[in-house]
Amino acid sequence: MPSLLEIRGLVRRFGGLTAVNAVDLHVGEGELLSVIGPNGAGKTTLFNLVTGLDRPDEGLVLFDGNDITGLPAQQLAQLGLARTFQHGRVFANLTVLDNVLVGAHTRLRAVKPRLGGVPGLGAIAELALALVQPGAVRREEEALREEAREIIALFGQRLAPRIDHPAYSLSYANRRRVEIARALALKPRLLLLDEPTAGMNESETAEMLEIIRGLKARGQAILLIEHKLDLVMQLSDRVAVLDDGRKIAEGLPDEVRNDPAVIEAYLGHRHVGSVETPNEEEAVPA
Score class of each variant (00 low, 15 high):
73 A>F: 09
267 L>G: 01
87 H>D: 15
219 G>M: 09
81 L>C: 05
92 A>Q: 15
17 L>G: 03
46 L>H: 06
188 P>H: 10
212 I>N: 00
137 V>L: 14
277 T>R: 14
167 A>Y: 07
65 G>V: 02
52 G>L: 00
82 A>Y: 08
187 K>D: 13
120 G>V: 11
100 V>Q: 04
226 E>H: 10
193 L>G: 00
147 E>L: 11
87 H>T: 14
159 L>E: 06
108 L>V: 12
258 N>D: 15
197 T>Q: 01
26 H>K: 15
85 F>K: 05
6 E>I: 09
236 S>Y: 02
282 E>D: 07
10 L>G: 04
103 G>E: 00
153 A>F: 03
273 G>H: 08
88 G>D: 11
33 L>D: 02
180 I>C: 09
204 E>C: 03
186 L>P: 03
160 A>W: 10
99 N>Y: 01
151 I>C: 03
111 V>T: 14
209 L>P: 00
210 E>I: 05
68 I>D: 03
61 V>Y: 04
261 A>C: 07
80 G>I: 00
143 A>Y: 08
21 N>L: 01
271 H>P: 12
187 K>E: 13
238 R>F: 05
163 I>G: 02
211 I>A: 11
260 P>Q: 06
286 A>Q: 14
228 K>M: 11
27 V>F: 03
98 D>V: 05
178 V>T: 06
249 A>D: 07
117 G>M: 02
89 R>S: 06
19 A>K: 11
30 G>S: 12
233 M>T: 12
14 F>L: 07
121 L>T: 13
128 A>T: 12
190 L>K: 10
225 I>K: 00
60 L>Y: 13
210 E>G: 04
60 L>R: 15
220 Q>S: 09
279 N>Q: 03
132 V>Y: 09
118 V>D: 09
221 A>V: 03
134 P>I: 14
265 A>Q: 01
256 V>S: 00
